[in-house]
Design a protein around this nucleic acid. Structure first.
Length: 484
RNA sequence: GGCCCCGUGGUCAAGUGGUUAAGACACCGCCCUUUCACGGCGGUAACAGGGGUUCGAACCCCCUCGGGGUCACCA
Protein backbone atom coordinates (compact mmCIF):
# COMPACT_ATOMS: atom_id res chain seq x y z
CA UNK A 1 0.00 0.00 0.00
CA UNK A 2 1.32 3.42 -0.90
CA UNK A 3 1.91 5.92 1.82
CA UNK A 4 -1.21 7.62 3.09
CA UNK A 5 -1.61 11.26 2.12
CA UNK A 6 -4.60 13.25 3.34
CA UNK A 7 -5.60 16.85 3.39
CA UNK A 8 -7.74 19.12 5.49
CA UNK A 9 -9.09 21.73 3.13
CA UNK A 10 -11.02 24.49 4.87
CA UNK A 11 -12.13 27.67 3.25
CA UNK A 12 -11.01 30.79 5.06
CA UNK A 13 -14.19 32.21 6.51
CA UNK A 14 -12.60 33.75 9.56
CA UNK A 15 -13.77 31.18 12.08
CA UNK A 16 -13.14 27.55 12.83
CA UNK A 17 -16.42 25.75 13.10
CA UNK A 18 -16.62 22.79 15.45
CA UNK A 19 -17.88 20.55 12.67
CA UNK A 20 -14.87 21.51 10.59
CA UNK A 21 -12.59 21.03 13.53
CA UNK A 22 -13.89 17.51 14.00
CA UNK A 23 -13.32 16.75 10.33
CA UNK A 24 -9.75 17.97 10.73
CA UNK A 25 -9.41 15.82 13.84
CA UNK A 26 -10.51 12.60 12.18
CA UNK A 27 -8.36 13.39 9.20
CA UNK A 28 -5.38 14.01 11.44
CA UNK A 29 -5.97 10.89 13.52
CA UNK A 30 -6.36 8.68 10.49
CA UNK A 31 -3.21 10.05 8.95
CA UNK A 32 -1.04 9.73 12.03
CA UNK A 33 -2.42 6.29 12.71
CA UNK A 34 -1.15 5.22 9.30
CA UNK A 35 2.10 7.17 9.49
CA UNK A 36 0.88 9.25 6.58
CA UNK A 37 1.31 12.83 5.49
CA UNK A 38 -1.21 15.40 6.68
CA UNK A 39 -1.61 18.33 4.34
CA UNK A 40 -3.30 21.67 4.91
CA UNK A 41 -4.80 23.26 1.84
CA UNK A 42 -6.69 26.53 1.78
CA UNK A 43 -9.74 26.58 -0.46
CA UNK A 44 -10.22 30.19 -1.40
CA UNK A 45 -11.58 29.94 -4.93
CA UNK A 46 -14.54 32.05 -3.94
CA UNK A 47 -13.09 35.51 -4.19
CA UNK A 48 -16.27 37.15 -3.01
CA UNK A 49 -16.02 35.49 0.35
CA UNK A 50 -12.43 36.36 1.03
CA UNK A 51 -11.86 37.31 4.67
CA UNK A 52 -8.74 39.04 5.84
CA UNK A 53 -6.74 37.15 8.44
CA UNK A 54 -8.88 34.07 8.08
CA UNK A 55 -6.05 31.71 7.23
CA UNK A 56 -4.29 32.75 10.42
CA UNK A 57 -7.33 31.63 12.41
CA UNK A 58 -7.05 28.24 10.77
CA UNK A 59 -3.36 27.96 11.57
CA UNK A 60 -3.81 29.09 15.16
CA UNK A 61 -6.72 26.79 15.88
CA UNK A 62 -5.13 23.69 14.41
CA UNK A 63 -1.90 24.31 16.25
CA UNK A 64 -3.65 25.05 19.53
CA UNK A 65 -5.37 21.71 19.16
CA UNK A 66 -2.15 19.91 18.51
CA UNK A 67 -2.88 19.05 14.91
CA UNK A 68 0.29 19.83 13.08
CA UNK A 69 0.43 19.51 9.32
CA UNK A 70 3.34 18.20 7.32
CA UNK A 71 2.76 20.29 4.24
CA UNK A 72 0.89 23.55 3.95
CA UNK A 73 0.87 27.17 2.82
CA UNK A 74 3.10 28.43 5.60
CA UNK A 75 5.61 25.59 5.62
CA UNK A 76 5.59 24.59 1.99
CA UNK A 77 6.09 21.12 0.59
CA UNK A 78 6.71 19.18 -2.60
CA UNK A 79 3.39 20.00 -4.23
CA UNK A 80 3.20 23.71 -3.41
CA UNK A 81 1.42 26.04 -3.58
CA UNK A 82 -1.14 25.01 -0.97
CA UNK A 83 -3.49 27.90 -1.51
CA UNK A 84 -6.02 27.22 -4.21
CA UNK A 85 -6.18 30.69 -5.68
CA UNK A 86 -2.46 30.44 -6.32
CA UNK A 87 -3.02 27.27 -8.30
CA UNK A 88 -5.46 29.01 -10.59
CA UNK A 89 -3.49 28.38 -13.78
CA UNK A 90 -3.20 24.67 -13.18
CA UNK A 91 -6.88 23.92 -13.75
CA UNK A 92 -7.38 25.25 -17.26
CA UNK A 93 -5.28 22.62 -19.10
CA UNK A 94 -7.24 19.85 -17.44
CA UNK A 95 -10.50 21.50 -18.35
CA UNK A 96 -9.35 21.77 -21.94
CA UNK A 97 -8.42 18.13 -22.00
CA UNK A 98 -11.92 17.31 -20.84
CA UNK A 99 -13.41 19.51 -23.54
CA UNK A 100 -11.31 17.78 -26.18
CA UNK A 101 -12.33 14.36 -25.03
CA UNK A 102 -15.98 15.35 -24.88
CA UNK A 103 -16.28 15.06 -21.11
CA UNK A 104 -16.82 18.79 -20.75
CA UNK A 105 -18.04 21.70 -22.83
CA UNK A 106 -18.24 25.47 -22.86
CA UNK A 107 -21.52 26.99 -21.76
CA UNK A 108 -22.53 30.52 -22.65
CA UNK A 109 -25.90 30.54 -20.93
CA UNK A 110 -26.31 33.57 -18.72
CA UNK A 111 -27.51 33.31 -15.15
CA UNK A 112 -30.72 34.99 -16.19
CA UNK A 113 -31.37 32.48 -18.95
CA UNK A 114 -30.67 29.64 -16.61
CA UNK A 115 -32.94 30.98 -13.95
CA UNK A 116 -35.74 31.47 -16.42
CA UNK A 117 -35.49 27.95 -17.77
CA UNK A 118 -35.27 26.56 -14.26
CA UNK A 119 -38.41 28.39 -13.25
CA UNK A 120 -40.25 27.22 -16.31
CA UNK A 121 -39.27 23.65 -15.64
CA UNK A 122 -40.27 23.90 -12.00
CA UNK A 123 -43.56 25.51 -12.92
CA UNK A 124 -44.25 22.40 -14.97
CA UNK A 125 -43.35 20.34 -11.96
CA UNK A 126 -40.16 19.00 -13.51
CA UNK A 127 -36.96 18.79 -11.54
CA UNK A 128 -34.40 21.12 -13.00
CA UNK A 129 -31.10 19.94 -14.24
CA UNK A 130 -28.97 21.78 -16.75
CA UNK A 131 -30.45 20.96 -20.14
CA UNK A 132 -27.13 20.59 -21.99
CA UNK A 133 -28.25 23.50 -24.17
CA UNK A 134 -24.71 24.58 -25.04
CA UNK A 135 -23.58 21.05 -25.75
CA UNK A 136 -25.48 21.42 -29.03
CA UNK A 137 -23.48 24.45 -30.16
CA UNK A 138 -21.49 23.99 -33.37
CA UNK A 139 -17.80 24.68 -33.43
CA UNK A 140 -18.48 27.80 -35.53
CA UNK A 141 -20.96 29.13 -33.00
CA UNK A 142 -18.51 28.49 -30.19
CA UNK A 143 -15.65 30.15 -32.05
CA UNK A 144 -17.65 33.24 -32.85
CA UNK A 145 -18.87 33.61 -29.28
CA UNK A 146 -15.33 33.18 -28.09
CA UNK A 147 -14.09 35.74 -30.62
CA UNK A 148 -16.78 38.12 -29.44
CA UNK A 149 -15.40 37.70 -25.95
CA UNK A 150 -18.63 36.35 -24.50
CA UNK A 151 -18.20 35.17 -20.92
CA UNK A 152 -18.69 31.48 -20.39
CA UNK A 153 -18.21 28.63 -18.00
CA UNK A 154 -17.03 25.09 -18.55
CA UNK A 155 -19.42 22.32 -17.63
CA UNK A 156 -18.96 18.64 -17.02
CA UNK A 157 -20.74 16.46 -19.58
CA UNK A 158 -22.31 13.71 -17.51
CA UNK A 159 -23.56 10.59 -19.27
CA UNK A 160 -27.28 10.06 -19.63
CA UNK A 161 -27.19 6.33 -19.15
CA UNK A 162 -25.72 3.89 -16.72
CA UNK A 163 -24.88 4.52 -13.12
CA UNK A 164 -21.88 5.63 -11.13
CA UNK A 165 -20.85 4.07 -7.89
CA UNK A 166 -18.04 3.83 -5.40
CA UNK A 167 -17.25 2.28 -2.07
CA UNK A 168 -17.01 4.64 0.83
CA UNK A 169 -14.98 3.44 3.78
CA UNK A 170 -17.71 4.34 6.23
CA UNK A 171 -20.92 4.32 4.19
CA UNK A 172 -20.14 1.35 2.00
CA UNK A 173 -21.40 1.06 -1.53
CA UNK A 174 -22.98 4.22 -2.94
CA UNK A 175 -24.60 4.23 -6.36
CA UNK A 176 -26.48 6.86 -8.33
CA UNK A 177 -28.09 6.77 -11.79
CA UNK A 178 -26.10 8.95 -14.16
CA UNK A 179 -29.18 10.66 -15.55
CA UNK A 180 -29.80 12.24 -12.17
CA UNK A 181 -26.36 13.85 -12.18
CA UNK A 182 -26.23 17.49 -13.15
CA UNK A 183 -23.71 18.99 -15.57
CA UNK A 184 -21.93 20.90 -12.89
CA UNK A 185 -19.79 23.94 -13.57
CA UNK A 186 -16.07 23.18 -13.54
CA UNK A 187 -14.65 26.58 -14.39
CA UNK A 188 -16.43 29.78 -13.49
CA UNK A 189 -16.66 32.87 -15.66
CA UNK A 190 -13.78 34.44 -13.81
CA UNK A 191 -11.60 31.49 -14.71
CA UNK A 192 -11.55 30.16 -11.19
CA UNK A 193 -12.39 26.51 -10.72
CA UNK A 194 -15.39 25.57 -8.62
CA UNK A 195 -14.82 23.59 -5.47
CA UNK A 196 -15.96 20.53 -7.35
CA UNK A 197 -13.29 20.76 -9.99
CA UNK A 198 -10.47 22.21 -7.93
CA UNK A 199 -10.84 19.40 -5.46
CA UNK A 200 -10.51 16.68 -8.02
CA UNK A 201 -7.53 18.29 -9.69
CA UNK A 202 -5.78 19.25 -6.47
CA UNK A 203 -6.42 15.97 -4.74
CA UNK A 204 -4.90 14.18 -7.69
CA UNK A 205 -1.94 16.46 -8.25
CA UNK A 206 -1.21 16.49 -4.54
CA UNK A 207 -1.26 12.73 -4.44
CA UNK A 208 -4.10 12.48 -1.94
CA UNK A 209 -4.85 8.83 -1.22
CA UNK A 210 -7.75 9.28 1.19
CA UNK A 211 -10.37 11.99 0.92
CA UNK A 212 -11.86 12.69 4.34
CA UNK A 213 -14.72 15.17 4.45
CA UNK A 214 -18.26 15.81 5.60
CA UNK A 215 -21.04 13.71 4.17
CA UNK A 216 -22.60 16.67 2.41
CA UNK A 217 -20.32 15.66 -0.45
CA UNK A 218 -21.47 12.08 -0.49
CA UNK A 219 -24.08 12.54 -3.18
CA UNK A 220 -21.82 14.47 -5.53
CA UNK A 221 -18.92 12.08 -5.23
CA UNK A 222 -20.11 9.95 -8.18
CA UNK A 223 -19.72 13.04 -10.36
CA UNK A 224 -16.20 13.57 -9.12
CA UNK A 225 -15.37 9.99 -9.94
CA UNK A 226 -16.59 10.49 -13.49
CA UNK A 227 -14.04 13.28 -13.71
CA UNK A 228 -11.23 11.14 -12.37
CA UNK A 229 -12.07 8.50 -14.93
CA UNK A 230 -12.27 10.99 -17.80
CA UNK A 231 -8.88 12.35 -16.83
CA UNK A 232 -7.44 8.88 -16.50
CA UNK A 233 -6.61 9.33 -12.84
CA UNK A 234 -6.89 6.78 -10.04
CA UNK A 235 -9.83 7.35 -7.72
CA UNK A 236 -8.89 7.96 -4.08
CA UNK A 237 -10.43 6.21 -1.10
CA UNK A 238 -13.31 8.09 0.46
CA UNK A 239 -14.16 8.56 4.11
CA UNK A 240 -17.31 10.60 4.50
CA UNK A 241 -18.19 11.76 7.98
CA UNK A 242 -21.66 12.03 9.54
CA UNK A 243 -22.88 15.50 10.32
CA UNK A 244 -22.66 17.13 13.74
CA UNK A 245 -26.14 18.30 14.62
CA UNK A 246 -27.45 20.97 16.97
CA UNK A 247 -30.67 19.00 17.42
CA UNK A 248 -32.43 16.31 15.46
CA UNK A 249 -33.51 18.77 12.80
CA UNK A 250 -30.66 21.23 12.44
CA UNK A 251 -27.01 20.81 11.97
CA UNK A 252 -24.62 22.71 14.16
CA UNK A 253 -24.54 25.84 12.14
CA UNK A 254 -22.43 28.90 11.88
CA UNK A 255 -25.51 30.92 12.52
CA UNK A 256 -25.86 29.59 16.03
CA UNK A 257 -22.99 31.83 17.00
CA UNK A 258 -21.81 29.34 19.55
CA UNK A 259 -20.44 26.81 17.14
CA UNK A 260 -16.97 28.25 16.82
CA UNK A 261 -13.90 26.96 18.51
CA UNK A 262 -12.96 30.45 19.65
CA UNK A 263 -16.33 30.93 21.34
CA UNK A 264 -15.80 27.91 23.52
CA UNK A 265 -12.29 28.91 24.44
CA UNK A 266 -13.50 32.37 25.41
CA UNK A 267 -16.13 30.90 27.67
CA UNK A 268 -13.61 28.81 29.48
CA UNK A 269 -13.63 25.44 27.80
CA UNK A 270 -10.28 23.69 27.70
CA UNK A 271 -9.00 22.71 24.28
CA UNK A 272 -8.14 19.22 25.48
CA UNK A 273 -11.68 18.70 26.73
CA UNK A 274 -13.12 19.98 23.48
CA UNK A 275 -10.96 17.68 21.38
CA UNK A 276 -11.67 14.72 23.62
CA UNK A 277 -15.40 15.30 23.40
CA UNK A 278 -15.41 16.03 19.68
CA UNK A 279 -13.54 12.82 18.97
CA UNK A 280 -16.39 10.89 20.58
CA UNK A 281 -19.15 12.55 18.57
CA UNK A 282 -19.42 10.11 15.71
CA UNK A 283 -16.65 7.78 16.70
CA UNK A 284 -16.01 5.29 19.47
CA UNK A 285 -12.87 3.39 20.34
CA UNK A 286 -14.59 0.04 20.67
CA UNK A 287 -13.95 -0.17 24.38
CA UNK A 288 -15.08 1.66 27.49
CA UNK A 289 -12.43 4.35 27.53
CA UNK A 290 -13.56 7.95 27.52
CA UNK A 291 -10.51 10.02 28.31
CA UNK A 292 -7.92 10.42 25.62
CA UNK A 293 -4.90 12.53 24.96
CA UNK A 294 -4.19 13.29 21.33
CA UNK A 295 -1.59 10.53 21.21
CA UNK A 296 -4.00 8.06 22.70
CA UNK A 297 -6.60 9.05 20.14
CA UNK A 298 -4.13 8.42 17.34
CA UNK A 299 -3.40 5.04 18.80
CA UNK A 300 -7.05 4.09 19.28
CA UNK A 301 -8.41 5.52 16.05
CA UNK A 302 -9.95 3.26 13.47
CA UNK A 303 -12.30 3.91 10.57
CA UNK A 304 -14.36 0.98 11.80
CA UNK A 305 -15.31 3.03 14.85
CA UNK A 306 -16.85 5.80 12.78
CA UNK A 307 -20.60 6.07 12.87
CA UNK A 308 -22.88 6.57 9.89
CA UNK A 309 -25.67 8.46 11.57
CA UNK A 310 -25.64 12.13 12.40
CA UNK A 311 -24.79 12.94 16.03
CA UNK A 312 -26.24 15.68 18.16
CA UNK A 313 -23.71 17.91 19.85
CA UNK A 314 -24.33 17.63 23.60
CA UNK A 315 -23.07 20.64 25.51
CA UNK A 316 -23.88 18.77 28.68
CA UNK A 317 -21.40 16.05 28.03
CA UNK A 318 -18.80 18.52 26.81
CA UNK A 319 -19.20 20.41 30.06
CA UNK A 320 -18.73 17.21 32.02
CA UNK A 321 -15.49 16.55 30.15
CA UNK A 322 -14.44 20.11 30.81
CA UNK A 323 -15.13 19.77 34.54
CA UNK A 324 -13.04 16.62 34.65
CA UNK A 325 -10.17 18.20 32.77
CA UNK A 326 -10.22 21.27 35.01
CA UNK A 327 -10.15 19.06 38.05
CA UNK A 328 -7.01 17.34 36.78
CA UNK A 329 -5.16 20.56 36.11
CA UNK A 330 -2.05 21.23 38.22
CA UNK A 331 -3.13 23.79 40.87
CA UNK A 332 -0.86 26.53 39.59
CA UNK A 333 -2.21 26.11 36.09
CA UNK A 334 -5.76 26.26 37.38
CA UNK A 335 -4.95 29.43 39.28
CA UNK A 336 -3.47 31.04 36.22
CA UNK A 337 -6.53 30.25 34.11
CA UNK A 338 -9.01 31.23 36.82
CA UNK A 339 -7.30 34.45 37.88
CA UNK A 340 -8.98 36.72 35.30
CA UNK A 341 -12.37 35.39 36.33
CA UNK A 342 -11.57 35.87 40.01
CA UNK A 343 -10.50 39.42 39.28
CA UNK A 344 -13.69 40.08 37.43
CA UNK A 345 -15.78 39.13 40.45
CA UNK A 346 -13.59 40.46 43.26
CA UNK A 347 -12.57 43.75 41.70
CA UNK A 348 -9.52 44.20 43.82
CA UNK A 349 -10.96 42.95 47.08
CA UNK A 350 -8.12 41.44 49.13
CA UNK A 351 -8.43 37.67 49.34
CA UNK A 352 -6.36 34.57 49.89
CA UNK A 353 -6.50 33.71 46.19
CA UNK A 354 -4.56 30.44 46.35
CA UNK A 355 -6.98 29.14 48.98
CA UNK A 356 -9.93 30.34 46.92
CA UNK A 357 -8.50 28.56 43.91
CA UNK A 358 -8.14 25.41 45.96
CA UNK A 359 -11.79 25.54 46.93
CA UNK A 360 -12.92 26.39 43.41
CA UNK A 361 -10.92 23.98 41.30
CA UNK A 362 -13.09 20.98 42.05
CA UNK A 363 -16.24 22.99 41.47
CA UNK A 364 -15.45 24.76 38.23
CA UNK A 365 -17.33 23.38 35.26
CA UNK A 366 -16.64 26.22 32.86
CA UNK A 367 -14.45 29.18 33.76
CA UNK A 368 -17.05 31.73 32.77
CA UNK A 369 -19.26 30.50 35.59
CA UNK A 370 -16.78 31.52 38.27
CA UNK A 371 -17.87 35.13 38.75
CA UNK A 372 -21.43 34.17 39.56
CA UNK A 373 -20.23 31.57 42.01
CA UNK A 374 -18.07 33.92 44.04
CA UNK A 375 -19.78 37.29 43.63
CA UNK A 376 -21.10 36.93 47.19
CA UNK A 377 -17.57 37.32 48.51
CA UNK A 378 -17.49 40.85 47.24
CA UNK A 379 -20.98 41.70 48.29
CA UNK A 380 -23.47 39.60 50.16
CA UNK A 381 -26.72 39.39 48.22
CA UNK A 382 -30.03 40.20 49.88
CA UNK A 383 -31.53 36.98 51.17
CA UNK A 384 -34.65 35.57 52.70
CA UNK A 385 -34.41 34.43 56.31
CA UNK A 386 -36.21 31.27 55.22
CA UNK A 387 -32.77 30.08 54.14
CA UNK A 388 -31.91 29.54 57.79
CA UNK A 389 -34.46 26.82 57.93
CA UNK A 390 -32.96 23.41 57.20
CA UNK A 391 -34.39 20.35 58.91
CA UNK A 392 -31.60 18.07 57.90
CA UNK A 393 -29.01 20.39 59.38
CA UNK A 394 -31.09 20.86 62.53
CA UNK A 395 -31.35 24.53 61.89
CA UNK A 396 -34.51 26.62 62.09
CA UNK A 397 -35.57 30.21 62.36
CA UNK A 398 -35.98 29.66 66.08
CA UNK A 399 -32.54 28.22 66.66
CA UNK A 400 -30.78 30.71 64.43
CA UNK A 401 -30.58 33.80 66.71
CA UNK A 402 -28.97 31.78 69.48
CA UNK A 403 -26.69 29.99 67.04
CA UNK A 404 -25.49 33.21 65.48
CA UNK A 405 -24.94 34.78 68.85
CA UNK A 406 -22.83 31.82 69.90
CA UNK A 407 -20.85 32.01 66.66
CA UNK A 408 -20.36 35.75 67.10
CA UNK A 409 -18.88 35.22 70.52
CA UNK A 410 -16.61 32.41 69.43
CA UNK A 411 -15.34 34.15 66.33
CA UNK A 412 -14.67 37.47 68.00
CA UNK A 413 -12.25 35.85 70.41
CA UNK A 414 -10.01 34.37 67.81
CA UNK A 415 -6.58 35.95 67.96
CA UNK A 416 -5.16 34.93 64.63
CA UNK A 417 -7.67 34.60 61.79
CA UNK A 418 -6.67 31.27 60.26
CA UNK A 419 -8.78 28.40 59.08
CA UNK A 420 -7.49 25.96 61.72
CA UNK A 421 -8.16 28.51 64.46
CA UNK A 422 -11.64 29.23 63.21
CA UNK A 423 -12.33 25.54 62.97
CA UNK A 424 -11.00 24.93 66.45
CA UNK A 425 -12.93 27.77 68.06
CA UNK A 426 -16.25 26.90 66.46
CA UNK A 427 -16.07 23.17 66.99
CA UNK A 428 -15.11 23.29 70.63
CA UNK A 429 -17.59 26.07 71.33
CA UNK A 430 -20.43 24.21 69.63
CA UNK A 431 -19.59 21.01 71.49
CA UNK A 432 -19.42 22.89 74.79
CA UNK A 433 -22.87 24.33 74.15
CA UNK A 434 -24.17 20.86 73.47
CA UNK A 435 -25.40 21.69 69.96
CA UNK A 436 -25.21 19.87 66.65
CA UNK A 437 -22.64 21.24 64.22
CA UNK A 438 -25.27 21.99 61.62
CA UNK A 439 -27.36 24.01 64.04
CA UNK A 440 -24.64 26.62 64.17
CA UNK A 441 -22.67 26.15 60.98
CA UNK A 442 -25.62 26.14 58.63
CA UNK A 443 -27.01 29.51 59.72
CA UNK A 444 -23.52 30.92 60.01
CA UNK A 445 -22.77 30.12 56.39
CA UNK A 446 -26.09 31.59 55.33
CA UNK A 447 -25.45 34.73 57.33
CA UNK A 448 -22.01 35.13 55.81
CA UNK A 449 -22.88 34.36 52.22
CA UNK A 450 -26.57 35.06 51.84
CA UNK A 451 -26.97 32.03 49.64
CA UNK A 452 -27.79 28.35 49.69
CA UNK A 453 -24.80 27.13 47.84
CA UNK A 454 -21.22 28.28 48.25
CA UNK A 455 -17.78 26.99 47.32
CA UNK A 456 -16.92 25.82 50.81
CA UNK A 457 -18.53 25.66 54.22
CA UNK A 458 -18.99 28.25 56.96
CA UNK A 459 -15.39 27.96 58.14
CA UNK A 460 -13.85 28.42 54.71
CA UNK A 461 -16.14 31.31 53.89
CA UNK A 462 -15.45 33.04 57.20
CA UNK A 463 -11.75 32.66 56.61
CA UNK A 464 -11.87 34.02 53.05
CA UNK A 465 -13.94 37.00 54.10
CA UNK A 466 -11.46 38.05 56.76
CA UNK A 467 -12.19 38.76 60.39
CA UNK A 468 -13.60 42.22 60.01
CA UNK A 469 -15.92 41.51 57.10
CA UNK A 470 -17.07 38.22 58.58
CA UNK A 471 -18.04 39.82 61.87
CA UNK A 472 -19.65 42.75 60.10
CA UNK A 473 -21.82 40.40 58.03
CA UNK A 474 -22.67 38.38 61.08
CA UNK A 475 -23.80 41.44 62.98
CA UNK A 476 -25.90 42.77 60.15
CA UNK A 477 -27.52 39.39 59.73
CA UNK A 478 -28.38 39.26 63.42
CA UNK A 479 -29.76 42.77 63.31
CA UNK A 480 -31.92 41.90 60.30
CA UNK A 481 -33.27 38.96 62.24
CA UNK A 482 -34.41 40.96 65.24
CA UNK A 483 -35.82 43.85 63.23
CA UNK A 484 -37.56 41.70 60.68
C1' G B 1 -40.23 16.96 -5.70
C1' G B 2 -35.75 13.76 -7.97
C1' C B 3 -31.39 11.42 -6.20
C1' C B 4 -28.23 9.87 -1.93
C1' C B 5 -27.70 8.65 3.25
C1' C B 6 -29.35 7.59 8.19
C1' G B 7 -33.00 5.45 12.22
C1' U B 8 -30.96 1.22 19.72
C1' G B 9 -33.09 5.19 26.22
C1' G B 10 -33.49 12.73 26.47
C1' U B 11 -28.04 12.69 24.31
C1' C B 12 -23.42 9.96 22.77
C1' A B 13 -23.25 4.93 21.97
C1' A B 14 -21.89 -1.06 22.40
C1' G B 15 -24.19 -4.72 19.80
C1' U B 16 -22.98 -7.68 13.23
C1' G B 17 -28.89 -14.43 14.07
C1' G B 18 -29.59 -17.08 20.29
C1' U B 19 -27.38 -11.09 25.43
C1' U B 20 -31.21 -10.42 31.83
C1' A B 21 -30.07 -5.24 25.02
C1' A B 22 -23.52 -2.89 27.75
C1' G B 23 -21.28 1.76 29.21
C1' A B 24 -21.05 7.25 29.58
C1' C B 25 -23.62 12.20 30.12
C1' A B 26 -28.19 14.08 32.00
C1' C B 27 -32.17 13.06 35.47
C1' C B 28 -34.13 10.84 40.24
C1' G B 29 -33.29 8.44 45.12
C1' C B 30 -30.14 6.87 49.21
C1' C B 31 -25.40 7.09 51.90
C1' C B 32 -21.24 10.22 53.33
C1' U B 33 -21.06 15.36 54.84
C1' U B 34 -20.66 22.13 58.29
C1' U B 35 -23.62 23.85 52.40
C1' C B 36 -22.74 22.86 47.23
C1' A B 37 -19.76 19.68 44.88
C1' C B 38 -16.75 15.24 44.92
C1' G B 39 -17.15 10.10 46.12
C1' G B 40 -20.06 5.41 46.96
C1' C B 41 -24.62 2.66 46.07
C1' G B 42 -29.17 2.17 43.52
C1' G B 43 -33.10 3.65 40.02
C1' U B 44 -36.26 5.57 35.69
C1' A B 45 -35.48 5.12 30.48
C1' A B 46 -34.37 2.28 23.97
C1' C B 47 -34.22 -1.63 19.30
C1' A B 48 -39.55 4.00 14.61
C1' G B 49 -43.90 0.88 12.56
C1' G B 50 -45.56 -3.21 9.52
C1' G B 51 -44.62 -7.39 6.70
C1' G B 52 -41.41 -11.36 5.43
C1' U B 53 -36.75 -15.07 5.77
C1' U B 54 -35.43 -18.33 9.96
C1' C B 55 -36.26 -23.15 15.03
C1' G B 56 -34.84 -18.15 16.55
C1' A B 57 -34.22 -11.50 14.70
C1' A B 58 -31.94 -4.89 17.20
C1' C B 59 -28.88 -7.63 13.65
C1' C B 60 -30.83 -10.33 6.78
C1' C B 61 -34.84 -8.69 2.82
C1' C B 62 -39.19 -5.53 1.43
C1' C B 63 -42.63 -1.59 2.39
C1' U B 64 -44.17 2.58 5.31
C1' C B 65 -42.98 6.50 8.45
C1' G B 66 -39.47 9.90 10.46
C1' G B 67 -34.92 12.74 9.97
C1' G B 68 -30.70 14.62 7.36
C1' G B 69 -27.95 15.80 2.86
C1' U B 70 -27.87 17.39 -2.15
C1' C B 71 -29.91 19.42 -6.51
C1' A B 72 -25.31 27.39 -6.97
C1' C B 73 -20.63 30.42 -11.71
C1' C B 74 -20.55 28.48 -2.14
C1' A B 75 -17.31 25.33 -0.38
Amino acid sequence: MTKVRTRFAPSPTGFMHLGGLRTALYCYLFTRKHQGTFILRIEDTDQERFVEGATQVIYDTLRACGMNWDEGPDIGGPVAPYIQSQRKDSYLPHAERLIKSGHAYRCFCTREELQQRRETAEARGDTWKYDKHCLGLSQEEIDSKLAAGLPHVVRQNTPLTGESSFDDLVFGHIAAPNDTLDDMVLLKQDGMPTYNFANVVDDHTMGITHVIRGMEYLSSTPKYNLLYQALGWPIPQYIHLPTVMRDSKHKLSKRDGDAYYSDFVKRGYLTEALINYLALVGWNPGDEREFFTMDELVDAFSVAGLSKSPAIFDINKLTWFNTEYIRRLPPDEYLQLAQPWFDKALQGQPMDIPRLAQLMQGRTEVFERIPDMIAFLRERPAFDSALYDNKKQKSSLDSTPGALELARGLLSQIQEWTEPNIHQALMTGIAAAGLKNGTVLWPLRIALSGQLSTPGGAIEIAYLLGREEALRRLDSARAALTSG
